[in-house]
Design a protein around this nucleic acid. Structure first.
Lengths: 211, 211
DNA sequence: CAGTATACTAAACACTCGTTCAATCGAGAG
DNA sequence: CTCTCGATTGAACGAGTGTTTAGTATACTG
């Protein structure tokens, strides 16, 4: 007997979990209510009974995932999520469904996914600003654009995880993948790719021309 | 009167074009044969009559897009496509459907998309190797992984174009976007993000530990 | 000219979809 | 005990799906 009436009991949360798994794996449109029901071991009618509609179920999954992403904050800042991401990537097995679902949210362009990504960019932007102020990071001609790029580069392994994993011969998002990409990523972020500014200067000239 | 019987006449190619547009915009599962037919101004039955099934139509769209991507080769190498990409990004209005569809292919994990990405990575890898040999690019501890990263960073604006465009206030893949991301990208690839190797060295130590 | 193959449409088919509904089960309240 | 109410199911509904089929028009072939 819980305090609130329609609490997260066993069945309701099991349905939500099944939905998250299938939405993440197959996408929203390709997932049927009946398949969710089967995965959760209940009837299709019960899914609707609990959540009203497939769309509302999706909204609740979105909300649940966002909450999950915000949960593991570092304790230092407020509802931080870049620290949360760190935690999740180091404890992959537990958070894989959450991360898979996050990838879908960013692609489908759902309202929740959009806001989440905006937050991530904002967080990255301040982090980069502080880095520049502290003298540990390079400055840039376009701080916002750089923040967008760094953020999207960061979520890329989650969004493109199928391709990423396939090319590395891994079954999905594994810690082996994360570990292997760490050094090359940091090499790029430390030394860059080009050894001189030839390409950069050329682009600067070209852009000065047709602007 | 064409030489071959079932040649790319007007109707057939119009259906294919409509399919490419809708598959790219809404995805394969969310696109109905009837909506393709309507977009092409024909009946649903005719779509099947010409292509056999929705799945075969998809395969033909995939093949057509791959051919289109390979078409604009620089003339120097063989069936090159990194040069092709350059051409397309500079003539966006014409190739937007092709690029949109490419983004879908990479996400859906279709066979054609997988091979295309593999080719892109291979091309990138040789390009990076030559860059290192010529002394214009930095060396790396993991050439293949770096090639994968650089490639995926490259296709990211196409794959995540919806988010990318939204955050820049653009309606879609525009030349304004491409132009604005050019400098920050090259800055990252030239100077990197960090001004010293503190993070990189720390990662090296950490990885040496738990390997 | 007749004959035939092809482009094309409208209707129907079999199926799946999300959702609704009536009925049943089980536990807590009085 | 009865009564009630939420959980749960299975069947049904209407809409939409990909595909099939019968039929018509059109254009090339002999």
């Amino acid at each position: 007997m819980r305090s609130t009436p329609a609490e997260d009991a066993t069945t309701r949360s099991r349905i939500r979990g099944a939905a998250i798994t299938l939405f993440a794996r197959d996408g929203f449109v390709a997932t049927s209510v009946r398949s969710i029901a089967e995965e959760a071991g209940v009837s299709a009618g019960l899914v609707i009974h609990h959540f009203g509609s497939k769309e509302k179920l999706r909204a609740e999954c979105d909300a649940w995932i966002v909450a999950e992403l915000m949960k593991n904050k570092g304790g230092v800042d407020e509802g931080n999520l870049s620290a949360s991401m760190q935690v999740m990537l180091s404890d992959l097995d537990q958070y894989r469904p959450t991360l898979d679902y996050l990838g879908r949210m960013l692609l489908d362009g759902s309202e929740a996914g959009d806001r989440l990504l905006d937050d991530l960019v904002k967080l990255t932007e301040t982090m980069l600003e502080e880095g520049v102020a502290n003298g540990v990071m390079q400055s840039t001609s376009d701080p916002y654009m750089r923040a967008v790029l760094v953020t999207l580069h960061g979520v890329m392994p989650i969004v493109l995880q199928r391709q990423f994993a396939r090319m590395l011969g891994e079954p999905g998002l594994t810690s082996t993948m994360i570990r292997r990409m760490t050094l090359p990523s940091l090499e790029l972020y430390t030394h860059g790719l080009y050894r001189d500014a030839t390409m950069l200067d050329a682009a600067r000239e070209a852009l000065k021309g047709n602007e």
